[in-house]
Design a protein around this nucleic acid. Structure first.
Length: 227
DNA sequence: GCGACAG
DNA sequence: ATCTTGTCGC
């Protein structure tokens, strides 16, 4: 399907088409070992001001984890926030933010779930399948799945199990700090996802690419407010 | 019907 | 996500 079609979906008018698209993308999504070590990773996050949405994609270079470039998109969100349908609210802005990057990322990291979702299609899996790009979901809280509290040290993790399958991991990125809910999005597996998240979060709880995108989107939002 | 529920 | 101050700790 054409990625741009998600731009015109409305709720509840297009609920049927929304479900069709989810089913189609769920069929394309693939959980496999990462082919090559990612050199360019993009962290994506968004802020809101009523129905205005500010989405940012921050590109980092690995293994040095150095910031390379940022892409900012400010527009309007035409879809409401509904648990399980986050992709339709933020997806359109994500497409625009990614288009603004000069270089093509070989891995996308989202602030949300990968396959740890009711339909196995959290925003990371959805965008990954839509763009056929490797992606990882790194959420701050749980959507679905059961788990045992991971150990207290950075690097400790526990399986995130949903309907009898390991869909991700609850990962401690910092000693004695709340863990992250990591799950693969597309063209990567659970082990690879945990590995990448730990590599991209050597200092803070969340990944540096996503953190930078978050801080910048909030900064742009504040500037947009004062005018 | 009740409780859960990414951002 | 957003509404919001101070405060504890590195």
């Amino acid at each position: 399907m054409d990625p741009d079609e998600i731009r015109n979906l409305r709720w509840p008018g297009d609920r049927e088409r929304v479900r069709e698209i989810q089913d189609e993308l769920a069929g394309k999504r693939r959980i496999t070992a990462l082919r090559r070590r990612p050199r360019l990773v993009a962290g994506i996050d968004a802020s809101f001001l009523d129905d205005k949405i500010i989405c940012v994609a921050s590109l980092y270079g690995l293994p040095d984890l150095v910031p390379l470039e940022d892409s900012v998109f400010a527009g309007r969100a035409h879809f409401p926030y509904i648990t399980g349908l986050l992709s339709f609210r933020e997806g359109p802005a994500v497409l625009d933010a990614l288009k603004g990057l000069k270089r093509r990322p070989d891995l996308l990291i989202f602030d949300g779930q990968g396959i740890a979702h009711p339909l196995g299609l959290g925003i990371a899996a959805f965008m990954g399948a839509l763009l056929d790009a490797p992606s990882v979901g790194s959420a701050k809280t749980r959507l679905v799945g059961e788990y045992r509290e991971p150990g207290p040290r950075r690097g400790d993790f526990a399986d995130l199990v949903y309907r009898g399958a390991v869909v991700g991991a609850v990962v401690r990125t910092r000693d004695d700090v709340k863990p992250l809910f990591v799950s693969p999005g597309h063209r990567i597996d659970v082990a690879g996802s945990v590995e990448v998240v730990l590599e991209c979060a050597p200092r803070f709880r969340i990944t540096e690419p996503v953190r930078r995108a978050h801080l910048l989107s909030r900064k742009v939002k504040r500037e947009l407010m004062g005018e």
